[in-house]
Each structure stands twice: as C-alpha cells, then as structure tokens.
C-alpha cells in the first residue's frame, strides 16, 4: 500500500517550471532517497507534498485517498477540512535549517504541536517528548534553549519534534547539509535507527553513503523530472541514464 503517490505533478514559479510531470510513490515502510544536482526541484517536490508549496497541476494521494487535485493553478478537488488536516499531519517534515522555535526550550518545542494541535494533555505530551528525546540521545537537554545546542543536536530535536505528531511518513529535506562535517554522523545515525524501526521515509540528501546503506530505493531528480530510479546498489553501480552517471561522477 502506498502512503504517498503523485500523478502528473507539475509546479511552476511564474515562467519557471520546476517540477515536470512527477509520478512516484512511497510504499509503507519504505525508505526512499532523492538525490540530484542543486536546483533540480527536490525541495520544491517535498514542500509540494506537505502543502508548503501549491502545485500547479496534478494529483496527490495520501493513504490511497485523493488528497488534492489541481489543474492550471486552481484546485479541482480537495478533501474536506477535517480529513485534509488529518492526512496532512501524516507527514512530518525536517528542514535543512532545523527551524526550531528559539524562544521555547527543547521540551517545549516538542510538546507545542501535540498540546495545541492534537489537544493532548501536558502530562501526556511531556511523557512522550521525554521518550522521543531519549530516542534521539538528548534526554539531558530537555530544558535547554535551542541556541545552546550544536547544529547536530538541534536537528535531532527537530526530528523528535516531528515524530511527536506521530506521522506515518517522515520527509527530510537535506537534514545534514547545514551541519559541520563532524556533526553529520549523529543525525544520520538517528535517521538510520528510525528507518530500522520501520518508519516510512522520503529523504532528500547528498549523503550517498547513507542512501546506499539505508535506502530501499533511490530516485535521481534532474531539471524537474525523475531521470532514473531503482535500488541503490543498481543506481549507484550501474546507472542507466547518462545524466545520472555524470552526476555521480561529479560528486564521488
């Protein structure tokens, strides 16, 4: 069963067409990595899925339900509000720049959405947040403000914050690109254990080692299209598309 499926998704910013007819899906329990050169439209695609960008046309299915259908920049069909919000919350998002709330402690960052969106009790949310912090290895940082943490720690908090909403799929947009090299490992470690625990993940990344080791499938995106996709061992060792080959050569 696919958790997310897109059909003919296109996105333009004015004259500039950034996504051209994207058809893809992510199955339950699958870890999919998206790689590709800068400007390929990877972020735009991820952001289109959780509605930070409005697609120009195409269909998005979540949990096999038609979540959104747009044509020529206007909405043809959208689920009714309650169901729409519910499906939207099945996606958790981790940003390149963490985007933690600087005026809230680590604990408050994690509890905010469960308390105000899911209407959990404070005690319940706090208990859950404590468990998540332990899971990302930051149980002792719950009362710190984000500014007091390293980038790697902040990104792990951001992961815990997204997990607190109990999403079915986690979207990662270059989660380690803003980090100093020595801090990349700790974040990838958390992501790897998350994948091992069965979480469905869609990860835009430049970490080829991570993609090779953790991904079930790798998508190569280039100029707004999916140029090639397949299991990592195949895509990395025997790429079929010359552009994939060129990209892999340029970064390895």
């Amino acid at each position: 069963m696919s958790l997310i499926r897109t059909a003919n998704v296109c996105k333009s910013f004015g004259e500039l067409t950034v996504l051209k007819d994207i058809n893809m899906s992510v199955e339950q329990g699958e870890v999919v990595c998206i790689i590709g050169p800068s400007g390929a439209g990877k972020s735009t695609f991820l952001r289109s899925l959780n509605q930070l960008e409005k697609i120009t046309s195409g269909k998005i299915f979540i949990d096999e339900e038609l979540f959104l259908h747009r044509e020529n920049g206007s909405t043809v069909l959208r689920l009714e509000q309650i169901k729409y919000k519910q499906l939207l919350l099945e996606m958790g998002m981790v940003f390149q720049s963490f985007n933690l709330f600087p005026h809230k402690t680590v604990m408050e960052n994690i509890m905010l959405a469960p308390v105000h969106v899911k209407k959990q009790s404070k005690a319940e949310a706090e208990k859950k947040a404590g468990e998540l912090l332990a899971k990302v290895g930051l149980a002792d940082k719950s009362d710190e403000y984000p500014a007091r943490l390293s980038g790697g720690q902040q990104q792990r908090v951001a992961i815990a914050r997204a997990l607190a909403m109990e999403p079915k799929i986690m979207l990662f947009d270059e989660p380690t690109s803003a980090l100093d090299p020595e801090l990349v490992g700790e974040v990838l470690g958390v992501m790897k254990s998350l994948a091992e625990s069965g979480m469905t993940m869609l990860v835009v990344t430049h970490e080829m080692g991570f993609a090779r080791e953790v991904a079930d499938r790798v998508i190569f995106m280039c100029d707004g299209v999916i140029a090639e996709q397949g299991p990592p061992e195949k895509l990395f060792s025997k790429p079929e598309n010359p552009r994939t080959r060129q990209f892999l050569n340029s970064i390895l």
Partner: peptide, 23 residues
C-alpha cells in the same frame, strides 16, 4: 521573523492564529 518559523509551524499543523500567538 525567519520564514522557516512559519513553515515549521505549518508543517506541525498549527493554524495561522496559533502560529502567530505561540510562535
């Protein structure tokens, strides 16, 4: 305020009012 703060709030499901009031 950094646009990322609005995006993170939206991705967590906060409404516009909650985003303003809490973040």
């Amino acid at each position: 305020i950094d646009k990322g703060q609005f995006e993170a709030s939206k991705a967590l499901g906060l409404s516009y009012g909650q985003t303003m009031q809490l973040v």
